[in-house]
Design a protein around this nucleic acid. Sequence first.
DNA 1: ACCTGAACACCGTTCAAGT
DNA 2: ACCTGAACACCGTTCAAGT
Lengths: 235, 235
Amino acid sequence: MAETLRRAPLSRDRILHAAVALADEAGIESLSMRNLAQDLGVVPMALYKHVANKDELLDGMIDVVVGEIDPPAADADWKHTLRRRVLSARQVLRRHPWAPLAIESRNMATPAILSYLDSTVGTLLAGGFSTDLAHHVMHAMGSRILGFSQELFDASRRAGRSGGTDPGPPAALPAEVAARFPRLAEIAAAASHDDESVVGQGCDDQFEFEFALDLLLDGIERLHRQGWTSSRRPG
Amino acid sequence: MAETLRRAPLSRDRILHAAVALADEAGIESLSMRNLAQDLGVVPMALYKHVANKDELLDGMIDVVVGEIDPPAADADWKHTLRRRVLSARQVLRRHPWAPLAIESRNMATPAILSYLDSTVGTLLAGGFSTDLAHHVMHAMGSRILGFSQELFDASRRAGRSGGTDPGPPAALPAEVAARFPRLAEIAAAASHDDESVVGQGCDDQFEFEFALDLLLDGIERLHRQGWTSSRRPG
DNA sequence: ACCTGAACACCGTTCAAGT
DNA sequence: ACCTGAACACCGTTCAAGT
């Protein structure tokens, strides 16, 4: 009897939150129906009463994450509203690092994502954007609108960990890599930008994210001011 | 004897190209060591003489794909050189639609990717960029520098396929989705932009990709002309 | 020494047997 | 009617047996 009372009765919501917690703590590769069931103190097949299959479980997890993003503050202009919301999305994704890949690997937009995108479009239209420009802007922002960093370049920092020990901080690039790719090494060495006290710390992710975000937002603002339409390319 | 002569002897190269072909044709989810071995007319364990494990196989496949990207043409200015190369990368990825997710899911940059990034940095530095600006530009371009479309928004087009039959073209959004997300429907309806003959065709992926690419390149060009440094934010 | 079949430790999911 | 253990059809990879 103690075993059956140990936890609240199973529900879709409890399953989804347990799955998110498992992915957060152990990584998405540890998320199996069997592991999840064990975490919940339940037999694996019990999960299938609440989620149809693993894909639907992942969709539900994505909706949980997207639901954590702050709603748009309606008191500011479109640019600040959008900027704040994207940065909020980024903070959410930092708590759930598995989410970007999970979202990209699903081939269907979930209701929560559609709702998020819809209200973002609303921000643009309320800011006076034509439907035409709003459309292209949504494409141009791409997954960055959900806070994705999509740091391909970040991978170069991890490029050296082939050998055994991993001593010290990831300062610049390993010597062998730096020798083969000298120009990568050159800009990596510039990574300790205006923060003087931080040397060989690697990149400031928040700075890089805002740099790219503002580059896009400023360009979008310029097109908007110029009354851009499809017949004229940006520039 | 006929069986043993049926194919060329196994090699790492032959394995990698067979794996790329399998992923291209049947999808990355069909790529298993067992399926790949069968395609090659070989016992599964034979593969392990040439690749250490499946992760190394994926790394090798990524290098094959990245190797198909045109080298930079050295005769133009940085902007056109970069633009052409990114568009070349995009064409390559369109032939290998599994590659973006595969690249993002690997946590280590492969030699071919590092080489690609290194020569791209070289283009920027040769164009007179400071190492500082070149560094942030690489981050801002992100995976788009490898031709990634990262069309999150594209997913909304596929949002309606829950029911059974799938009749006709994906014209705008399904009625139920359009009703719940009216502003998404509004900009989706604007998708048939200046091409008058195409109605309800969905988005022009190439147009959207170049729109975003040029938005970034134009913004980058502006910063470069202004002699941007870390102490001043873009804008 | 080389190759390879069987085996191991997992998966997601089906299905029939048990209550 | 509901729940669930065993089973099925897969994985990637180890390992020992066979040549």
